[in-house]
């Protein structure tokens, strides 16, 4: 129940952020749904017991969602991707890092900074992995199409 409420909260927040980025029409709903989905994945992958791995999984799910929806609706994938990763961005980690820095607890600051960077890297890596798969599929599809038109003789 708590998880459901949290997902609802992220959905609302992503809905509002979509307006901030000027997304229009039914796309707002889809991108906000992506936000809720990525947060849900983040929570249910908690057995992995590492914030970085959790973010990685959530980012993978968000990317798969965005890329497939982008192909279905024929709009650029970042429309959904940008909004979907909003619940994952390490805002609280950045805050803790900054707090540790100004209270000059340097060794804790260093480990916190590395964790924040790690999370950002995990999100980027998730996007990289999925998008390159989709790009690969796209190139193969295009090559096949090319072969077909060439064999039929009309270029």
């Amino acid at each position: 129940m708590d998880l459901f409420l949290d997902c609802l909260i992220t959905f609302t927040a992503c809905f509002a952020i979509s307006i901030h980025f000027n997304v229009k029409g039914k796309l707002i709903f889809f991108s906000a749904l992506g936000g809720a989905l990525s947060y849900y994945t983040y929570v249910i992958s908690s057995p992995a017991n590492s914030v970085i791995i959790q973010n990685f999984f959530a980012s993978i799910v968000a990317s798969i969602y965005s890329e497939s929806l982008a192909r279905m609706l024929k709009v650029p994938a970042p429309t959904f991707l940008i909004i979907s990763i909003i619940p994952l961005v390490p805002g609280s980690n950045l805050y803790r890092t900054m707090e540790l820095c100004i209270s000059s607890k340097l060794s804790k600051f260093a480990s916190s900074a590395v964790e924040t960077l790690g999370i950002a890297g995990a999100i980027a890596l998730g996007i990289l992995l999925v998008s390159s798969m989709f790009r690969f599929a796209y190139v193969i599809q295009k090559l096949n199409l090319h072969k077909k038109t060439n064999s039929e003789g009309n270029v």
Binding site: A13, P78, L81, I82, G91, A124, I127
Partner: peptide, 26 residues
């Protein structure tokens, strides 16, 4: 602190990060 973290979300460079990853792939 929760207020500050919440408002960070409006400033966060999520767009730059996403686009960076997608440009690297290409």
């Amino acid at each position: 602190d929760s207020i500050i973290i919440a408002c960070y979300m409006l400033l966060f460079p999520g767009v730059a990060l996403t686009n960076a990853a997608r440009d690297f792939i290409a």
